[in-house]
Design a protein around this nucleic acid. Structure first.
Length: 419
RNA sequence: GGAGAGAUGGCUGAGCGGUUGAAAGCACCGGUCUUGAAAACCGGCAAAGGGGCAACUCUUUCCUGGGUUCGAAUCCCAGUCUCUCCGCCA
């Protein structure tokens, strides 16, 4: 959420920086509403002042005037609220300003590679897809899931379920004991204002699973990522400078409608309505965002290094970067069956954008109250890591070698073979 | 599900129709004292929004939304959330 006061100072420049993204915002209307809004506020405050003075004077002769003012106020306040509302709707749909490091571009094709890492496996056979391997092992069951639930769900069974759990535990341990994150086991359901805080609402309502609660209760949503619930830990708070940075990690299921990607990745578990993800969130001083982003991204790539999976680091262009982010790195893992890299982590600095929405502030060195910076990143998406392990560690006979670092989490199992 | 209690500033907590934006304490910031620190003492310390180049000033805000009143943190109604007890249950 942008601060109108700040925008007003240099409106033209603000528009220019926002328009690096492919968006359609009616800035003229925004400007007009802002002017109108302030007019009404001034009118309102003048009347309120008069009313206040009458009540202070306790002069009975003026009581009628006071009643009159009250009636006028009702109308003005109503109109002002309406204007303010329209203003807020426009404002809450304006994305974050991208950082100057972010390359200009239209879409994902314009993202820029920073580096590649790891050695791609050399197969002397045609590598199978993860779902071919998983189904042959009888440890993925998509058909069963479509019967019990619907499309884009899966049953993971037996050793692959164990592998999935091992990945989760391995990542959690590393982030907790080596990388300094505090583990959280959060609610998987978020309220409307929580979803608003991180920017999922109002613009991306179509992607969210809303839950039917009791009649009359507030709206509730299944979290699309733990980012939502972890970042909102500091919602409506003035946090202590000495508590910063705060670093949280959680392994949770994530729920997404994936509306608008109906034709994409229909096979296998690349794109599911439900998947596990280990999420990293940092709450930092607002001038520490970029250095924290590097740190966080290193925490994510560190996992891939440990798993010996080949990957590359990308910086997203202005056309592909997310709504709340000022700067984002995507980590893409190598998938032999597709012969390309696929996103496995996305690490973003949201600068003070989410904090402004959540009303999270701290007193900085100069004793000024300012918004914190927030960051989030996957460390990593479990489902896709599972895929990457299966495909990169496959053998010709359809069995899968267990990466060494995971073996302690799997009763020292070295290889997953058909039963 | 039944019965009660509550929601006040960064935190704890008073106030229960008229300079109350709100006592007190803690925390925090500045100062005195001290070789330094602690303690003690003195002073400061809510946020959002509007106007102003600024000094500054105005308005709003005591869970949320309505209502009563010239005037509401304080009274009335509705809602949300939290806590305690009982029941049920993983």
């Amino acid at each position: 959420m942008h601060n109108l006061k700040e925008i007003r100072k240099d409106f033209e420049n603000f528009i220019k920086s926002i328009q690096k993204r492919p968006i359609d915002i009616n800035f003229n209307l925004l400007k007009k509403l802002d002017v109108k809004n302030r007019e009404l506020i001034q009118k309102k405050e003048a009347l309120e002042k008069e009313k206040k003075e009458i009540s202070k004077s306790k002069d009975e002769n003026l009581f009628n005037r006071s009643k009159e003012i009250s009636e006028q106020l009702i109308k003005i306040i109503e109109e002002q609220k309406k204007i303010k509302n329209e203003l807020d709707i426009i404002l809450s749909n304006i994305p974050n300003v991208t950082h100057s490091d972010v390359p200009n571009g239209k879409n994902e094709n314009d993202n820029v590679e920073i580096f590649k890492s790891g050695k791609k496996p050399n197969f002397d056979f045609k590598p199978k897809t993860h779902y071919e391997i998983g189904e042959k092992l009888k440890m993925f069951d998509f058909d069963l899931a479509s019967r019990t639930t619907g499309s884009r769900f899966v049953f993971v069974k037996d050793k692959l379920a164990l592998l999935e759990r091992a990945l989760s535990n391995f990542m959690l341990d590393k982030h907790m004991f080596k990388n300094g994150y505090q583990e959280i086991s959060p609610p998987l359901i978020a309220s409307e204002d929580t979803m608003y805080g991180t920017g999922q609402l109002p613009k991306f309502e179509n992607d969210q699973f809303e839950i039917k609660f009791d009649e009359g209760s507030d709206r509730k949503f299944l979290i699309p990522t733990a980012e939502v619930i972890l970042t909102n830990i500091v919602k409506d708070k003035i946090v202590d400078l000495k508590d910063l940075p705060m670093r949280f990690v959680a392994s949770t299921p994530c729920f997404r409608k994936e509306a608008g990607s109906y034709g994409k990745d229909t096979k296998g578990m690349i794109r599911q309505h439900q998947f596990y993800k280990v999420e990293l969130v940092s709450i930092v001083e607002n001038d520490k965002c970029l250095e924290e982003l590097e740190r966080m991204t290193n925490c994510a790539t560190g996992i891939l290094d440990d798993l010996c999976l080949p990957y590359r680091k990308m910086i997203l262009c202005t056309g592909d970067i997310g709504f709340s982010a000022e700067k984002t790195y995507d980590i893409e893992v190598w998938l032999p069956s597709e012969n390309k890299y696929r996103e496995i982590s996305s690490c973003s600095s949201c600068s003070t954008f989410q904090a402004a929405r959540m009303k999270t502030r701290y007193k900085n060195q100069n004793n000024e109250l300012v918004n914190v910076g927030t960051l989030n990143g996957s460390g990593l998406a479990i489902g896709r890591t599972l895929i990457a392990v299966i495909e990169n560690y496959q053998l010709e006979d359809g069995s899968v070698i267990v990466p060494e670092v995971l073996r302690p989490y799997m009763n020292n199992l070295e290889k997953i073979s058909p039963n």
